[in-house]
Design a protein around this nucleic acid. Structure first.
Length: 204
DNA sequence: GGGGGGATTCGG
DNA sequence: CGAATCCCCCCG
């Protein structure tokens, strides 16, 4: 094993469903080439059980990666300009996934600044699901990539444990169509992290 | 083939 | 607060 932030992860770590896996992804490190960041905020999307999930109404051309084996990346394009990245989890066929919502930049900050723009403050380099994809250079070409295969795009462990008591909240950006799923507290973050996508309501 | 809507972001 | 700007997906 090389550098500290280069320890591979077991695929079984992602075998459970998203609401259980999501908080355990906090403090892991997402790497793409020279750029990397620590995961500080995530949301769980639970497939057929979850009206807010892209997979709620079954498999489509867009969401098929979510139905595949865990440990792969589901990338989707939205609002005509942004990509968002999810870690597929759960058993094959269950379409459970965890949206990565914010990273604390760790390495390759110059690269991130070049991609994000010269006037973007560091705090906003990767604070948001679209921003972090832009900062790390993740796009639709990475849909389906295996994060545990030792490639340039990978998820690794650097010794930092997941927080024992993450802060929780309701998921961001859901429309009224999500119904009661909007009340689920399936947003998780590292308590007190200044790198989250938006301030925490009440810091609960 | 048409149209409504989007797990967002930035600027005015 | 609204525009940007595609693409996806369901329906006819």
């Amino acid at each position: 094993v090389g550098s500290a932030a280069d320890v591979p992860l077991e695929r079984s770590r992602f075998a459970a469903l998203a609401p259980e896996v999501a908080p355990r992804l906090l403090n892991l490190v997402l790497v793409h080439g020279e750029a990397s960041g620590r995961i500080v905020e995530v949301e769980a999307y639970n497939g057929a059980e979850d009206a807010a999930s892209h997979a709620y109404r079954g498999m489509t051309a867009r969401n098929r990666v979510m139905f595949g084996p865990p440990g792969h990346l589901y990338v989707y394009f939205t609002y005509g300009m942004h990509c968002c990245a999810n870690v597929v989890c759960g058993p094959e066929g269950r379409a459970s996934a965890v949206l990565i919502r914010a990273l604390e930049p760790l390495t390759g900050l110059e690269t991130m600044r070049r991609r994000r723009g010269p006037r973007v403050p560091d705090r906003l380099l990767a604070a948001g699901p679209g921003r972090l994809c832009q900062a790390l250079g993740i796009d639709r070409a990475h849909n389906g990539a295996d994060l545990l295969g030792g490639g340039a795009l990978r998820l690794v462990h650097d010794g930092a444990a997941a927080p024992v008591e993450p802060v929780t909240g309701t998921r961001i950006g859901l429309s009224a169509r999500a119904g009661e799923a909007g009340a689920l507290r399936w947003r998780f973050a590292v308590r007190g992290s200044p790198w989250v996508s938006r301030p925490w309501p009440g810091d609960v």
